[in-house]
Amino acid sequence: MIEAVLPQASLLKKIIEAIKELVSEANFDFSETGIRLQAMDKSHIALSFLHLRNDGFSEYRCDRSQTLGINLESFSKVLKCAANDDQVQIKATDKAESLSISFESTAKDRVSEFNVKLMDIDIDSVDVPDMDYQATVNMSSQEFARIVRDMMTIGEAITIDATKQGVKFSTSGDAGEGNILLRHRKTIDEEDGPSSTSVEINEPVSHSLALKFLANFAKAAPLADRVSINLIEDAPVMFEFKISDMGHIRFYLAPQIEE
């Protein structure tokens, strides 16, 4: 038996919106400690990784570990039937054929219940080793989304250069080229405002990435004020959005081969 309650449906809506463009169906692994999801896009270039800890839910029960295969488009459609402030409960019995999702209004005078069919999803999962990143950029997630949007008007690929001075995003295309530099701030405090950027660096590192994937990652911006971009030579770049007090979404993106 699985039962999990979140006080606000808006959080679950944002989580599903953040991954459904990259992954159409995914296995949700429920265990005593929480929920995990790992899924690659069809082309195996990007990996999405979601972790929600049990203590982030207002109620959480998982009697035995269970994997539920869910079509994310269907999940998203059902979640659209919830008001943002509704409490949401997800429930599945052992060997269930569907996931029960119910919403309760804040006044507790309206309760709706939906069922989404579960599916067997045969997908590859990968082992992600712990890595010592050479550079970690911590920046506003809104700023990240804006840069991705701006760069897409010019090119298809983006180069991220992290140095002690800051982080530079650049692109080029038929129409021309452009770059945006965010200077490193030693401390991120009130004075600097939430838009400031920090770069923790051991060695300068540079990666070239396909912009269309970053546009998908930027859909996680409503979940977190900040995003961290973690870079290491010759390995996928990791983008992390923290989900307040309960976990994170991480996206790993394989770099393009530098020409």
């Binding site: 990968v126 298809e156 394989a254 393009q256």
Partner: peptide
């Protein structure tokens, strides 16, 4: 466009 590597060329399958 530049050639694109796959996640699987970095991380092994479980």
């Amino acid at each position: 466009a530049a050639p694109q590597r796959s996640i699987l060329s970095f991380f092994g399958k479980k």
